[in-house]
Computed example of a mutant assay.
Amino acid sequence: MSLHRTSMGRAVRELRHRRGLTVRQLAHQIGVSIGTVSAIENGRVGISSERVVTLADALGVRADRLLVGIAEPIRDERWGVAAGDSAQAGVGDWRHYEPLELHPALRGALASFLELGYHGSTMRGVAERAGLSVAGLYHHYSSKQQLLVTILDTTMEELQLRTTAAVATTDDPWTRFAVLVECQALFHSHRRELGFIGATEMRSLAGPARERIAHARREEQARIDSEVLAGCLNGAFGTPRPREAARAVVTMCTAIPQWYRHGGDSSPEQVAASYVDFALDLVQCDPAKRPQGD
């Protein structure tokens, strides 16, 4: 059994655990048998470079991290924190936004995707925008697809951290619904570039990364669904079609990047306040049923 296979197997097992995946789930995502995943984790088989890339996408890391093996937490170049620690290091005040900081390669990719779209972008063009050589870009990211996956993972990670922090501030459905809408509207205006790519380039994702990111998006929708249903059950919301109303609310918020511009007529906070009002109208909120103190 080679040391290389052993270290890679340990890395795969550790990253799978961090992702909360079972062996069966990982096997399904990368299109192999459960026995193959077990053999990889135990260092009994080697894997092709193509499968390394697929496996890395499923585990949310760069392919080179699997190739060298990971025994200790590593620094995430998207955020500058240890991988797996971003939830702890992420959001203190969910309403507060610092300027977006990304690895130069990701900044170059984001600029290129915004201007030319994913399919119109090239690794050479991304490298030029990033201020890197083409070889330097490939040192960090193996493909244009991996750049897109990392950007969309970054988007969903930050959004989920913020919505989790927002709902933790209150116990009643009406206020949870309001802060979730506020959080979505703030994110899609403050982070309009990330939101725009999320809205326009999901179709460009391939393989297990597509399902992982789509699942995260469904989880965000489910948060709103849950609070609208709870508001209807306790009489605060009067809409006869709570699921349709909840989807309309999320669609309204995710469309903000299509028109919002930094430095325009409205600040993100003004947009968010308006969208909370719009959302409450959509669910037919009864002001008399609002919690005391609102």
Rank of each mutant, 00 (worst) to 15 (best):
G117M: 11
D172M: 05
A83N: 14
E220G: 09
L282H: 06
A222P: 01
G231W: 02
L148N: 05
V249W: 11
F278R: 04
F177M: 10
T169G: 12
L100S: 00
V167H: 01
T22N: 08
T200G: 10
G84A: 03
G9T: 07
D286F: 14
L21S: 06
G31Q: 05
V276L: 09
Q284A: 12
A109I: 04
E244W: 11
L137V: 06
E128N: 01
D277R: 13
P291M: 11
A236V: 11
Q221M: 13
E158R: 09
A56F: 15
H262K: 15
L106S: 08
E41N: 02
N42K: 03
A11N: 00
T163Q: 12
V32F: 02
H96F: 13
L67V: 14
S48E: 12
P268Y: 09
T36K: 06
L194K: 05
A272K: 04
R107P: 05
G69L: 08
D153H: 15
M252H: 10
A105M: 03
S86F: 15
T251L: 09
T22M: 01
Q284W: 00
L180C: 05
R13T: 09
I40S: 09
G125L: 05
R243D: 00
L186Q: 10
I151D: 07
G92M: 10
A127N: 06
R5I: 09
G207E: 13
L205Q: 13
P208S: 10
E201G: 14
L147A: 10
Y118L: 06
N234R: 06
G35H: 10
R243S: 00
T36W: 13
R78D: 01
L59A: 05
Y138C: 00
